[in-house]
Design a binder for these strands. Sequence first.
RNA 1: GCCGGGGUGCCCGAGCGGACUAAGGGGCUGGCCUUGAGAGCCAGUGGCGGUUCGACCGCCGCGCGGGUUCGAAUCCCGCCCCCGGCGCCA
Length: 456
Amino acid sequence: MPWSMLEYLRKKPEIIKESLRKRGLDVSVVDEAIRLDAEWRRQYTKVNQLRHKHNILSKSIAKLKGKEKEKAIKEAKELLKTISEEEKRLRELEEAREKILLSLPNIVHETVPEGLTEEENVPIRFWGKPKVYVGFIEKFKEQTRGFDVEYEVIHWKPKGHADMLTFLGLGTTEKAGEVAGSRFYYLFDDLVWLDIALLMYAIDYLTRKGFTLILPPYMLREKYYLGVTTLEDFRDSIYKIEGEDLYLIATSEHPIAALHANEIITEEDLPLLYAGISPCFRKEAGAHGKDTKGIFRVHQFHKVEQFVFSKPEESWEWHEKLIRNAEELWQGLGIPYRIVNIVAGDLGAVAAKKYDLEAWMPAQGRYREMVSCSNCTDWQSYRLRIRFLKRKGMVRDYVHTLNSTAIASTRAITAILENYQEEDGTVIIPKVLRPYLEMFPKAPKEYIVPRKTRQK
RNA sequence: GCCGGGGUGCCCGAGCGGACUAAGGGGCUGGCCUUGAGAGCCAGUGGCGGUUCGACCGCCGCGCGGGUUCGAAUCCCGCCCCCGGCGCCA
């Protein structure tokens, strides 16, 4: 009924400890929180008794006259002094307890595998028939161990997506680096069309599935930002607007989560399904040296996001549905992928469980993250005060929030540039995207070819 | 950005310094009644804590944060948001 973290602390602290242990974190804070909570309760009772005394006295003053009144007022004033001292102590205890509880990462779900690093993430299924360059066969087999994944051997080495930008003449990161810095890009013509078509494809799919299309604010106040993510993530990835209490969003997940902040949703309105579309801005601090070339890891891209507010008892079902939606989208694109169950140590504080969809990248010989699908249970909703009203018993409870990428434009483009690349460097356009290009005379239709060989 | 009006519970809406405890209505939940549905009647319907766990007791709560007062939904200050008017603007 209340916040799960406080409830666990009081009733089943071992669950919190087990969760922290799985994440490879210090467990001792839990005992400290238990101690603080017990003391807070004692202090709370004490303060309440004092306040009660004062209320009685204060009410009696209205009926008193003359000297008796003076005396009672004096007494009340003295009592107030004591109360404010005890209240101060109460506040300190509560703040200390809250500080610990708010710093705790989400309780990991029982189905989350143990492990601390990315390498230990557990593949759970594979889809598609990857094109594997002969030189990568060993690597491929390693990554598909335990699964019987059909693949096609190719004897030419595909160009990496970064080289493809130059080869096609449809993108430059050098000039963008000069004018905006590293991890920015200029894309031209066909790749821009592709970016737009990918977004259209995703919103078309999701709105047909009953998701409400939403274009959110691209900036949020700090208060709301701290409700959706941790301080560390916030510092590492969020851009601040100079001189204002505003931050550029890292994903539409964040403003969508904040959409129902401080609200009470009626039970019948759940689940609420949203398909967000927005640019995403990320500092990528702490990713130095990783994916420095091309547009795989960039400061800015477009993304269509799935977001669900659900009843607690339905959130695990929705988690599976969201990853299935992402899979259907990527199957539609015809890009081979695998789904991995992220280990506890690599989860991120907000999620209780996370699946990644990783696309096969023929030029790199490995699977790379394209989609991230998380159940955040009540971690965000507690901080943002998003509750719903249960008809039975008229009780309020925190909703669960879930989010999953549908398509992130630049990453999807890298996957297409590598998976749909022909030996001569031509890129075939996935069939599902063509309807979204047809209406534009200047958009590419079936192939993307190098700029210089194209008819103007 | 300026001027004016406003923000009250799940929703609507009264209250505008202490007494009757946020009136009243709607909705919802439970009970009674009924062959059933409905109507009607009764009760419940913010958070936290204590508890002999009883339908019990207490504290806090009227956009958010401060202040005045023995006592604040009510008065004062700051902030956020909404509505109307003016200004500015793609």
